[in-house]
Amino acid sequence: MARIIVVTSGKGGVGKTTTSASISTGLAKRGHKTVVIDFDVGLRNLDLIMNCERRVVYDFVNVIQGEATLNQALIRDKRVESLYILPASQTREKEALTKEGVEKVINELSDTFDYIVCDSPAGIEHGALMALYYADEAIVVTNPEVSSVRDSDRILGILQSKSRRAEMGQDPVREHLLLTRYNPDRVEKGEMLSVADVEEILAIPLLGVIPESQVVLNSSNQGMPVILEEQSDAGQAYDDAVGRLLGEEREHRFMTAQKKGFFSRMFKGG
């Protein structure tokens, strides 16, 4: 049985797709057969970040509606073996994602994959609910600012009440906090919430802290999951997060401000 992980946030633009791309790439790099599904029907982005937009023939909705088989729609990643992408449809309505249809696809993927990563659209509407419904675990992507934290709290409440696990009375969805766009210097100046603040408010375990970095933007534009930028702090932070997701003990990095952060960046040479 595959582990089904939803990457969600409530708020838009916090880094869900970037995170989905990097986490799934990280899992696949360690030899786990992984598929990442774009649930953002109508606003598909994942294929751009994974640099496979020119190879999309069939999509998730085609499979749900029986117009294509899974094998026709799955795109094999060119960089990492055992990584597959199931792209979203750009032309359909979100309502095309039916509970039964999504279940059928996820069940079929479960037979052959170790990990299914579901990249959720923003909001708390139908698409987001479908992305989280079948999840065993949730990575809640949050930026260190008040409105993002509030929306994450909202999505955590929905995970507790509207997921399949909640409806069936099974063990609750395992929640992980991933703090992105973290800038220790701005935290120091009081312009951003600190890791401790966000942890204290949301009260869920911390999976990782991804530092704010130009590398994230550059790699997105180049269609490269940032985790493959192994020299960058953001890439390393994602790699740590994948390790923790697999149960490894890794010390949290890139959280300290001022001198320490400044020096370590000097030594790494950017």
Binding site: D153, L156, Q160
Partner: peptide
């Protein structure tokens, strides 16, 4: 026994 989240 769980946190009461925003919107609940």
């Amino acid at each position: 026994s769980q946190p009461v989240r925003s919107g609940q």
